[in-house]
Design a protein around this nucleic acid. Sequence first.
DNA 1: TTCTTATCTTGACATTAGCAAGATAGATCC
DNA 2: GGATCTATCTTGCTAATGTCAAGATAAGAA
Lengths: 222, 222
Amino acid sequence: MPAKRELHNPKASYHHGDLRQALLDAGDGVLQEQGLKGFTLRECARRAGVSHAAPKHHFGDVTGFLTEIAALGFMRLSAALELEIAGATNLDEEFIATTRAYVDFAEAHPEHFRIMFRCDLLDDQAPNIRQAAGETFRLLTNVILRQRGEPSLSASEYASGGEVIFVNVIHDIVIGWSHIHGLAHLKLERQLTMVPEDMHEALLVKASRRLATMLRQEAGNT
Amino acid sequence: MPAKRELHNPKASYHHGDLRQALLDAGDGVLQEQGLKGFTLRECARRAGVSHAAPKHHFGDVTGFLTEIAALGFMRLSAALELEIAGATNLDEEFIATTRAYVDFAEAHPEHFRIMFRCDLLDDQAPNIRQAAGETFRLLTNVILRQRGEPSLSASEYASGGEVIFVNVIHDIVIGWSHIHGLAHLKLERQLTMVPEDMHEALLVKASRRLATMLRQEAGNT
DNA sequence: TTCTTATCTTGACATTAGCAAGATAGATCC
DNA sequence: GGATCTATCTTGCTAATGTCAAGATAAGAA
Protein backbone atom coordinates (compact mmCIF):
# COMPACT_ATOMS: atom_id res chain seq x y z
CA MET A 1 0.00 0.00 0.00
CA PRO A 2 2.16 2.85 -1.21
CA ALA A 3 1.50 5.90 0.89
CA LYS A 4 2.41 8.36 -1.80
CA ARG A 5 -0.71 7.61 -3.82
CA GLU A 6 -3.90 9.36 -2.81
CA LEU A 7 -6.76 7.34 -4.14
CA HIS A 8 -10.24 8.84 -4.26
CA ASN A 9 -11.35 6.25 -1.80
CA PRO A 10 -8.33 5.06 0.17
CA LYS A 11 -10.37 2.30 1.76
CA ALA A 12 -11.11 0.64 -1.54
CA SER A 13 -8.54 -0.99 -3.72
CA TYR A 14 -7.70 0.23 -7.17
CA HIS A 15 -10.17 -2.21 -8.60
CA HIS A 16 -13.56 -1.58 -7.15
CA GLY A 17 -15.05 -5.02 -7.36
CA ASP A 18 -18.53 -4.15 -8.54
CA LEU A 19 -18.27 -0.60 -9.74
CA ARG A 20 -21.01 -1.08 -12.28
CA GLN A 21 -23.61 -1.80 -9.63
CA ALA A 22 -22.19 0.88 -7.34
CA LEU A 23 -22.60 3.44 -10.10
CA LEU A 24 -26.18 2.37 -10.75
CA ASP A 25 -26.92 2.68 -7.04
CA ALA A 26 -25.31 6.11 -7.00
CA GLY A 27 -27.42 7.09 -10.00
CA ASP A 28 -30.52 6.00 -8.15
CA GLY A 29 -29.58 8.18 -5.23
CA VAL A 30 -28.83 11.21 -7.36
CA LEU A 31 -32.11 10.90 -9.23
CA GLN A 32 -34.04 10.60 -6.03
CA GLU A 33 -32.34 13.50 -4.29
CA GLN A 34 -31.61 15.94 -7.11
CA GLY A 35 -33.52 14.75 -10.12
CA LEU A 36 -32.38 14.54 -13.68
CA LYS A 37 -30.88 18.01 -13.50
CA GLY A 38 -28.35 16.98 -10.90
CA PHE A 39 -27.68 13.68 -12.59
CA THR A 40 -24.16 13.78 -13.99
CA LEU A 41 -21.66 11.07 -14.62
CA ARG A 42 -19.19 12.84 -12.41
CA GLU A 43 -21.58 13.10 -9.50
CA CYS A 44 -22.30 9.39 -9.74
CA ALA A 45 -18.58 8.69 -9.88
CA ARG A 46 -17.99 10.82 -6.80
CA ARG A 47 -20.65 8.94 -4.87
CA ALA A 48 -19.15 5.65 -5.87
CA GLY A 49 -15.76 6.93 -4.73
CA VAL A 50 -14.03 6.66 -8.08
CA SER A 51 -12.55 9.08 -10.55
CA HIS A 52 -14.64 11.02 -13.02
CA ALA A 53 -13.79 8.87 -16.02
CA ALA A 54 -14.43 5.53 -14.37
CA PRO A 55 -18.04 5.18 -15.62
CA LYS A 56 -16.90 5.27 -19.21
CA HIS A 57 -15.59 1.75 -19.18
CA HIS A 58 -18.88 0.37 -17.93
CA PHE A 59 -21.46 2.46 -19.74
CA GLY A 60 -19.69 4.25 -22.55
CA ASP A 61 -21.35 7.62 -22.34
CA VAL A 62 -24.23 9.23 -20.53
CA THR A 63 -26.74 7.80 -22.99
CA GLY A 64 -25.54 4.31 -22.23
CA PHE A 65 -25.83 4.98 -18.52
CA LEU A 66 -29.35 6.36 -18.80
CA THR A 67 -30.38 3.44 -20.96
CA GLU A 68 -29.34 1.11 -18.19
CA ILE A 69 -31.19 3.17 -15.58
CA ALA A 70 -34.31 3.12 -17.74
CA ALA A 71 -34.12 -0.62 -18.21
CA LEU A 72 -33.97 -1.05 -14.45
CA GLY A 73 -36.97 1.22 -14.20
CA PHE A 74 -39.00 -1.00 -16.50
CA MET A 75 -38.00 -4.03 -14.45
CA ARG A 76 -39.21 -2.36 -11.27
CA LEU A 77 -42.42 -1.29 -12.94
CA SER A 78 -43.01 -4.86 -14.10
CA ALA A 79 -42.42 -6.15 -10.59
CA ALA A 80 -44.85 -3.60 -9.15
CA LEU A 81 -47.48 -4.50 -11.75
CA GLU A 82 -47.13 -8.21 -11.13
CA LEU A 83 -47.48 -7.72 -7.40
CA GLU A 84 -50.63 -5.63 -7.66
CA ILE A 85 -52.17 -7.80 -10.34
CA ALA A 86 -51.62 -10.92 -8.27
CA GLY A 87 -53.68 -9.45 -5.45
CA ALA A 88 -56.76 -8.78 -7.54
CA THR A 89 -59.71 -11.15 -7.28
CA ASN A 90 -61.86 -9.99 -10.17
CA LEU A 91 -61.52 -8.20 -13.47
CA ASP A 92 -62.58 -4.79 -12.26
CA GLU A 93 -60.17 -4.98 -9.38
CA GLU A 94 -57.38 -6.18 -11.64
CA PHE A 95 -57.65 -3.27 -14.02
CA ILE A 96 -57.91 -0.78 -11.19
CA ALA A 97 -54.93 -2.36 -9.45
CA THR A 98 -52.92 -2.19 -12.66
CA THR A 99 -53.67 1.48 -13.09
CA ARG A 100 -52.86 2.14 -9.47
CA ALA A 101 -49.54 0.33 -9.64
CA TYR A 102 -48.56 2.23 -12.77
CA VAL A 103 -49.57 5.61 -11.36
CA ASP A 104 -47.96 4.90 -8.02
CA PHE A 105 -44.74 3.92 -9.72
CA ALA A 106 -44.65 7.20 -11.62
CA GLU A 107 -45.15 9.14 -8.42
CA ALA A 108 -42.70 7.09 -6.39
CA HIS A 109 -39.97 7.16 -9.04
CA PRO A 110 -40.70 10.27 -11.06
CA GLU A 111 -37.25 10.63 -12.53
CA HIS A 112 -37.02 7.01 -13.57
CA PHE A 113 -40.43 7.28 -15.15
CA ARG A 114 -39.42 10.37 -17.09
CA ILE A 115 -36.24 8.78 -18.33
CA MET A 116 -37.96 5.55 -19.34
CA PHE A 117 -40.18 7.52 -21.68
CA ARG A 118 -37.62 9.86 -23.13
CA CYS A 119 -36.46 8.04 -26.24
CA ASP A 120 -34.26 10.98 -27.22
CA LEU A 121 -32.10 10.42 -24.15
CA LEU A 122 -31.80 6.69 -24.59
CA ASP A 123 -30.63 4.08 -26.98
CA ASP A 124 -34.10 2.59 -27.12
CA GLN A 125 -32.94 -0.18 -29.44
CA ALA A 126 -30.48 -1.59 -26.92
CA PRO A 127 -31.31 -5.22 -26.08
CA ASN A 128 -31.60 -4.74 -22.34
CA ILE A 129 -34.17 -1.97 -22.46
CA ARG A 130 -36.10 -3.61 -25.29
CA GLN A 131 -36.32 -6.74 -23.21
CA ALA A 132 -37.33 -4.90 -20.05
CA ALA A 133 -39.91 -2.69 -21.75
CA GLY A 134 -41.24 -5.69 -23.65
CA GLU A 135 -41.93 -7.50 -20.42
CA THR A 136 -43.85 -4.53 -19.05
CA PHE A 137 -45.85 -4.40 -22.25
CA ARG A 138 -46.57 -8.11 -22.01
CA LEU A 139 -48.01 -7.67 -18.53
CA LEU A 140 -50.23 -4.82 -19.68
CA THR A 141 -51.28 -6.81 -22.72
CA ASN A 142 -52.32 -9.69 -20.54
CA VAL A 143 -54.41 -7.42 -18.36
CA ILE A 144 -56.36 -6.38 -21.45
CA LEU A 145 -56.59 -9.93 -22.76
CA ARG A 146 -58.12 -11.09 -19.50
CA GLN A 147 -60.62 -8.23 -19.58
CA ARG A 148 -61.70 -9.62 -22.94
CA GLY A 149 -61.86 -13.15 -21.63
CA GLU A 150 -58.92 -14.31 -23.71
CA PRO A 151 -55.93 -16.35 -22.53
CA SER A 152 -52.82 -14.59 -21.29
CA LEU A 153 -49.46 -14.82 -23.01
CA SER A 154 -46.49 -16.41 -21.31
CA ALA A 155 -43.11 -14.79 -21.76
CA SER A 156 -42.11 -17.41 -24.30
CA GLU A 157 -45.36 -17.14 -26.21
CA TYR A 158 -44.95 -13.39 -26.27
CA ALA A 159 -41.34 -13.65 -27.42
CA SER A 160 -42.14 -16.01 -30.25
CA GLY A 161 -44.77 -14.25 -32.24
CA GLY A 162 -46.89 -12.53 -29.69
CA GLU A 163 -47.56 -9.89 -32.30
CA VAL A 164 -49.47 -12.41 -34.34
CA ILE A 165 -51.57 -13.46 -31.37
CA PHE A 166 -52.63 -10.01 -30.24
CA VAL A 167 -52.98 -8.38 -33.63
CA ASN A 168 -56.75 -8.56 -33.21
CA VAL A 169 -56.83 -6.83 -29.87
CA ILE A 170 -54.10 -4.29 -30.38
CA HIS A 171 -56.68 -1.52 -30.44
CA ASP A 172 -57.91 -2.36 -27.00
CA ILE A 173 -54.39 -2.77 -25.69
CA VAL A 174 -53.51 0.69 -26.88
CA ILE A 175 -56.73 2.10 -25.45
CA GLY A 176 -56.00 0.55 -22.09
CA TRP A 177 -52.35 1.53 -21.99
CA SER A 178 -53.04 5.05 -23.18
CA HIS A 179 -55.56 5.48 -20.40
CA ILE A 180 -53.20 4.21 -17.75
CA HIS A 181 -50.14 5.98 -19.08
CA GLY A 182 -51.90 9.24 -19.77
CA LEU A 183 -53.33 9.35 -16.28
CA ALA A 184 -49.95 8.60 -14.74
CA HIS A 185 -48.11 11.12 -16.88
CA LEU A 186 -50.57 13.95 -16.43
CA LYS A 187 -50.64 13.38 -12.69
CA LEU A 188 -46.85 13.23 -12.47
CA GLU A 189 -46.45 16.44 -14.41
CA ARG A 190 -48.97 18.26 -12.23
CA GLN A 191 -51.60 18.69 -14.89
CA LEU A 192 -54.43 17.42 -12.70
CA THR A 193 -54.22 20.06 -10.03
CA MET A 194 -57.79 21.11 -10.71
CA VAL A 195 -58.76 17.90 -8.95
CA PRO A 196 -58.19 18.08 -5.19
CA GLU A 197 -55.45 15.73 -4.11
CA ASP A 198 -57.73 13.74 -1.85
CA MET A 199 -60.01 12.95 -4.77
CA HIS A 200 -57.30 11.43 -6.93
CA GLU A 201 -57.75 7.93 -5.62
CA ALA A 202 -61.50 8.00 -6.21
CA LEU A 203 -60.88 9.47 -9.64
CA LEU A 204 -58.49 6.67 -10.51
CA VAL A 205 -60.93 4.02 -9.37
CA LYS A 206 -63.93 5.48 -11.15
CA ALA A 207 -62.09 6.17 -14.39
CA SER A 208 -60.45 2.75 -14.46
CA ARG A 209 -63.70 0.95 -13.64
CA ARG A 210 -65.42 2.69 -16.48
CA LEU A 211 -62.59 1.87 -18.86
CA ALA A 212 -62.56 -1.76 -17.81
CA THR A 213 -66.30 -2.04 -18.34
CA MET A 214 -65.83 -0.74 -21.85
CA LEU A 215 -62.98 -3.12 -22.59
CA ARG A 216 -65.21 -6.05 -21.65
CA GLN A 217 -67.80 -4.99 -24.16
CA GLU A 218 -67.52 -5.96 -27.81
CA ALA A 219 -66.23 -3.09 -29.89
CA GLY A 220 -68.85 -1.48 -32.09
CA ASN A 221 -68.64 -1.03 -35.81
CA THR A 222 -65.40 0.04 -37.49
CA MET B 1 -20.34 54.14 -35.08
CA PRO B 2 -16.95 53.57 -33.46
CA ALA B 3 -14.90 51.20 -35.60
CA LYS B 4 -12.86 49.84 -32.74
CA ARG B 5 -15.78 47.93 -31.26
CA GLU B 6 -16.56 44.57 -32.75
CA LEU B 7 -20.18 43.84 -31.99
CA HIS B 8 -21.51 40.32 -32.35
CA ASN B 9 -23.76 41.52 -35.08
CA PRO B 10 -22.29 44.67 -36.60
CA LYS B 11 -25.44 45.26 -38.62
CA ALA B 12 -27.59 45.60 -35.57
CA SER B 13 -27.32 48.40 -33.10
CA TYR B 14 -26.34 47.90 -29.53
CA HIS B 15 -29.98 47.70 -28.62
CA HIS B 16 -31.60 44.95 -30.58
CA GLY B 17 -35.13 46.21 -30.73
CA ASP B 18 -36.97 42.98 -30.12
CA LEU B 19 -34.40 40.67 -28.71
CA ARG B 20 -36.94 38.83 -26.63
CA GLN B 21 -38.85 37.64 -29.68
CA ALA B 22 -35.63 37.00 -31.58
CA LEU B 23 -34.44 34.71 -28.81
CA LEU B 24 -37.72 32.84 -28.77
CA ASP B 25 -37.47 32.36 -32.52
CA ALA B 26 -33.90 31.17 -32.13
CA GLY B 27 -35.03 28.75 -29.45
CA ASP B 28 -37.67 27.39 -31.79
CA GLY B 29 -35.03 26.79 -34.44
CA VAL B 30 -32.65 25.07 -32.07
CA LEU B 31 -35.36 22.79 -30.71
CA GLN B 32 -36.42 21.83 -34.20
CA GLU B 33 -32.92 21.18 -35.50
CA GLN B 34 -31.08 19.81 -32.49
CA GLY B 35 -33.66 19.03 -29.87
CA LEU B 36 -33.52 19.77 -26.19
CA LYS B 37 -29.96 18.46 -25.94
CA GLY B 38 -28.67 21.19 -28.23
CA PHE B 39 -30.83 23.80 -26.61
CA THR B 40 -28.57 26.16 -24.68
CA LEU B 41 -28.90 29.80 -23.81
CA ARG B 42 -25.60 30.50 -25.51
CA GLU B 43 -26.65 28.86 -28.76
CA CYS B 44 -29.85 30.87 -28.82
CA ALA B 45 -27.88 34.03 -28.13
CA ARG B 46 -25.51 33.20 -30.99
CA ARG B 47 -28.40 32.73 -33.39
CA ALA B 48 -29.92 36.02 -32.34
CA GLY B 49 -26.54 37.66 -32.87
CA VAL B 50 -26.05 38.84 -29.33
CA SER B 51 -23.65 38.07 -26.55
CA HIS B 52 -23.98 35.00 -24.38
CA ALA B 53 -25.37 36.84 -21.37
CA ALA B 54 -27.99 38.85 -23.23
CA PRO B 55 -30.86 36.41 -22.56
CA LYS B 56 -30.53 36.89 -18.83
CA HIS B 57 -32.21 40.25 -18.84
CA HIS B 58 -35.25 38.91 -20.67
CA PHE B 59 -35.73 35.49 -19.17
CA GLY B 60 -33.64 35.34 -16.02
CA ASP B 61 -32.33 31.85 -16.31
CA VAL B 62 -32.85 28.78 -18.44
CA THR B 63 -35.95 27.80 -16.47
CA GLY B 64 -37.55 31.13 -17.25
CA PHE B 65 -36.70 30.72 -20.90
CA LEU B 66 -38.14 27.22 -21.09
CA THR B 67 -41.27 28.33 -19.29
CA GLU B 68 -41.82 30.90 -22.00
CA ILE B 69 -41.21 28.33 -24.72
CA ALA B 70 -43.66 25.96 -23.07
CA ALA B 71 -46.33 28.65 -22.79
CA LEU B 72 -45.98 29.31 -26.52
CA GLY B 73 -46.33 25.59 -27.07
CA PHE B 74 -49.64 25.51 -25.22
CA MET B 75 -50.86 28.44 -27.28
CA ARG B 76 -50.02 26.65 -30.50
CA LEU B 77 -51.65 23.49 -29.27
CA SER B 78 -54.79 25.44 -28.42
CA ALA B 79 -54.80 26.96 -31.89
CA ALA B 80 -54.41 23.55 -33.51
CA LEU B 81 -57.20 22.11 -31.40
CA GLU B 82 -59.56 24.96 -32.18
CA LEU B 83 -58.90 24.61 -35.88
CA GLU B 84 -59.56 20.90 -35.99
CA ILE B 85 -62.56 21.10 -33.68
CA ALA B 86 -64.13 23.79 -35.84
CA GLY B 87 -64.04 21.46 -38.84
CA ALA B 88 -65.96 18.64 -37.19
CA THR B 89 -69.60 18.16 -38.05
CA ASN B 90 -70.69 15.63 -35.44
CA LEU B 91 -69.63 14.44 -32.01
CA ASP B 92 -67.71 11.39 -33.16
CA GLU B 93 -65.79 13.46 -35.63
CA GLU B 94 -65.10 16.13 -33.09
CA PHE B 95 -63.54 13.79 -30.59
CA ILE B 96 -61.50 12.07 -33.27
CA ALA B 97 -60.35 15.42 -34.64
CA THR B 98 -59.34 16.54 -31.17
CA THR B 99 -57.28 13.45 -30.63
CA ARG B 100 -55.70 13.81 -34.05
CA ALA B 101 -54.80 17.45 -33.50
CA TYR B 102 -53.22 16.63 -30.15
CA VAL B 103 -51.26 13.66 -31.48
CA ASP B 104 -50.18 15.53 -34.59
CA PHE B 105 -48.98 18.42 -32.49
CA ALA B 106 -46.83 16.10 -30.40
CA GLU B 107 -45.28 14.60 -33.53
CA ALA B 108 -44.82 17.92 -35.29
CA HIS B 109 -43.30 19.67 -32.26
CA PRO B 110 -41.85 16.86 -30.18
CA GLU B 111 -39.47 19.01 -28.20
CA HIS B 112 -42.08 21.60 -27.36
CA PHE B 113 -44.43 18.86 -26.29
CA ARG B 114 -41.79 17.32 -24.04
CA ILE B 115 -40.97 20.65 -22.43
CA MET B 116 -44.63 21.56 -21.91
CA PHE B 117 -45.04 18.44 -19.80
CA ARG B 118 -41.83 18.58 -17.83
CA CYS B 119 -42.80 20.45 -14.70
CA ASP B 120 -39.35 19.93 -13.24
CA LEU B 121 -37.83 22.09 -15.97
CA LEU B 122 -40.39 24.84 -15.72
CA ASP B 123 -41.84 27.32 -13.34
CA ASP B 124 -45.28 25.86 -13.81
CA GLN B 125 -46.83 28.42 -11.51
CA ALA B 126 -45.82 31.35 -13.70
CA PRO B 127 -48.88 33.30 -14.88
CA ASN B 128 -48.18 33.03 -18.60
CA ILE B 129 -47.94 29.25 -18.68
CA ARG B 130 -50.85 28.81 -16.30
CA GLN B 131 -52.95 30.98 -18.57
CA ALA B 132 -51.85 29.17 -21.73
CA ALA B 133 -52.24 25.68 -20.29
CA GLY B 134 -55.58 26.67 -18.81
CA GLU B 135 -56.89 27.63 -22.21
CA THR B 136 -55.84 24.27 -23.65
CA PHE B 137 -57.57 22.54 -20.79
CA ARG B 138 -60.70 24.60 -21.35
CA LEU B 139 -60.85 23.49 -24.98
CA LEU B 140 -60.46 19.85 -24.00
CA THR B 141 -63.05 20.25 -21.28
CA ASN B 142 -65.52 21.64 -23.76
CA VAL B 143 -64.98 18.69 -26.08
CA ILE B 144 -65.98 16.39 -23.26
CA LEU B 145 -68.91 18.57 -22.20
CA ARG B 146 -70.30 18.49 -25.73
CA GLN B 147 -69.94 14.71 -25.84
CA ARG B 148 -72.17 14.66 -22.79
CA GLY B 149 -74.62 17.07 -24.32
CA GLU B 150 -73.79 19.85 -21.91
CA PRO B 151 -73.06 23.48 -22.76
CA SER B 152 -69.49 24.59 -23.39
CA LEU B 153 -67.66 27.05 -21.21
CA SER B 154 -66.52 30.39 -22.57
CA ALA B 155 -63.13 31.69 -21.53
CA SER B 156 -64.72 34.06 -19.03
CA GLU B 157 -67.00 31.40 -17.61
CA TYR B 158 -64.03 29.11 -17.25
CA ALA B 159 -61.94 31.82 -15.62
CA SER B 160 -64.60 32.70 -13.10
CA GLY B 161 -65.44 29.47 -11.41
CA GLY B 162 -65.22 26.87 -14.12
CA GLU B 163 -64.16 24.42 -11.44
CA VAL B 164 -67.57 24.66 -9.88
CA ILE B 165 -69.30 24.03 -13.16
CA PHE B 166 -67.37 20.97 -14.24
CA VAL B 167 -66.93 19.38 -10.85
CA ASN B 168 -69.57 16.84 -11.82
CA VAL B 169 -67.86 15.79 -15.02
CA ILE B 170 -64.25 15.99 -13.95
CA HIS B 171 -64.00 12.21 -14.10
CA ASP B 172 -64.94 12.13 -17.75
CA ILE B 173 -62.69 15.03 -18.54
CA VAL B 174 -59.75 13.19 -17.04
CA ILE B 175 -60.72 10.01 -18.84
CA GLY B 176 -60.84 11.80 -22.16
CA TRP B 177 -57.68 13.78 -21.67
CA SER B 178 -55.76 10.78 -20.35
CA HIS B 179 -56.75 8.85 -23.44
CA ILE B 180 -55.67 11.59 -25.79
CA HIS B 181 -52.52 12.49 -23.91
CA GLY B 182 -51.46 8.92 -23.31
CA LEU B 183 -51.82 8.04 -26.95
CA ALA B 184 -49.85 11.09 -28.03
CA HIS B 185 -47.11 10.56 -25.48
CA LEU B 186 -46.68 6.85 -26.11
CA LYS B 187 -46.58 7.43 -29.84
CA LEU B 188 -44.09 10.28 -29.53
CA GLU B 189 -41.78 8.23 -27.33
CA ARG B 190 -41.87 5.31 -29.74
CA GLN B 191 -43.73 2.93 -27.47
CA LEU B 192 -46.24 1.91 -30.13
CA THR B 193 -43.80 0.38 -32.57
CA MET B 194 -45.57 -2.95 -32.34
CA VAL B 195 -48.28 -1.33 -34.43
CA PRO B 196 -47.20 -0.80 -38.05
CA GLU B 197 -46.88 2.87 -38.86
CA ASP B 198 -49.54 2.74 -41.56
CA MET B 199 -52.08 1.48 -39.05
CA HIS B 200 -51.64 4.33 -36.62
CA GLU B 201 -54.28 6.51 -38.21
CA ALA B 202 -56.87 3.73 -38.17
CA LEU B 203 -55.89 2.94 -34.60
CA LEU B 204 -56.42 6.53 -33.55
CA VAL B 205 -59.82 6.67 -35.21
CA LYS B 206 -61.04 3.40 -33.81
CA ALA B 207 -59.79 4.04 -30.30
CA SER B 208 -61.16 7.56 -30.19
CA ARG B 209 -64.52 6.55 -31.59
CA ARG B 210 -64.83 3.90 -28.94
CA LEU B 211 -63.89 6.36 -26.22
CA ALA B 212 -66.34 8.94 -27.49
CA THR B 213 -69.13 6.40 -27.52
CA MET B 214 -68.39 5.62 -23.91
CA LEU B 215 -68.31 9.27 -22.90
CA ARG B 216 -71.77 9.73 -24.34
CA GLN B 217 -73.14 6.96 -22.15
CA GLU B 218 -74.17 7.58 -18.60
CA ALA B 219 -71.55 6.44 -16.18
CA GLY B 220 -72.46 3.30 -14.25
CA ASN B 221 -72.59 2.89 -10.52
CA THR B 222 -69.96 4.41 -8.22
C1' DT C 1 -28.23 69.35 -21.64
C1' DT C 2 -27.84 66.04 -17.92
C1' DC C 3 -29.58 62.22 -15.50
C1' DT C 4 -31.84 57.80 -15.26
C1' DT C 5 -32.86 53.47 -16.66
C1' DA C 6 -33.20 49.49 -19.63
C1' DT C 7 -30.45 46.90 -22.46
C1' DC C 8 -26.42 44.57 -23.93
C1' DT C 9 -21.24 43.20 -23.55
C1' DT C 10 -17.10 41.51 -21.36
C1' DG C 11 -14.74 38.68 -18.50
C1' DA C 12 -14.56 35.38 -15.05
C1' DC C 13 -15.63 31.01 -12.33
C1' DA C 14 -17.22 26.53 -11.39
C1' DT C 15 -18.92 22.67 -13.67
C1' DT C 16 -19.67 19.17 -17.24
C1' DA C 17 -18.84 15.35 -21.13
C1' DG C 18 -15.63 13.20 -23.49
C1' DC C 19 -10.98 11.88 -25.04
C1' DA C 20 -6.11 10.17 -24.66
C1' DA C 21 -2.50 8.39 -22.19
C1' DG C 22 -0.90 6.19 -18.36
C1' DA C 23 -1.11 3.41 -13.90
C1' DT C 24 -2.62 -0.72 -11.43
C1' DA C 25 -3.75 -5.27 -10.29
C1' DG C 26 -5.96 -9.59 -11.16
C1' DA C 27 -5.84 -13.44 -14.41
C1' DT C 28 -3.57 -16.45 -17.53
C1' DC C 29 0.01 -18.98 -19.37
C1' DC C 30 4.68 -20.93 -19.39
C1' DG D 1 7.25 -19.07 -9.42
C1' DG D 2 7.53 -15.48 -12.95
C1' DA D 3 6.28 -13.00 -17.24
C1' DT D 4 2.70 -11.29 -19.84
C1' DC D 5 -1.94 -9.94 -20.89
C1' DT D 6 -6.01 -7.51 -20.24
C1' DA D 7 -9.69 -5.30 -17.83
C1' DT D 8 -10.17 -1.66 -14.88
C1' DC D 9 -9.37 2.77 -13.02
C1' DT D 10 -6.81 7.48 -12.78
C1' DT D 11 -4.88 11.82 -14.47
C1' DG D 12 -4.86 15.53 -17.26
C1' DC D 13 -6.67 17.92 -21.01
C1' DT D 14 -10.12 20.43 -24.25
C1' DA D 15 -14.30 22.62 -25.47
C1' DA D 16 -18.55 23.88 -23.86
C1' DT D 17 -22.15 25.57 -20.56
C1' DG D 18 -24.94 28.53 -16.88
C1' DT D 19 -24.52 32.14 -14.01
C1' DC D 20 -22.69 36.15 -11.95
C1' DA D 21 -20.54 40.86 -11.53
C1' DA D 22 -19.02 44.86 -13.55
C1' DG D 23 -18.97 47.84 -17.17
C1' DA D 24 -20.55 49.99 -21.74
C1' DT D 25 -24.18 51.94 -24.53
C1' DA D 26 -28.24 54.12 -26.02
C1' DA D 27 -32.91 55.87 -25.44
C1' DG D 28 -35.83 58.72 -23.08
C1' DA D 29 -37.06 61.83 -19.24
C1' DA D 30 -36.27 65.94 -16.64
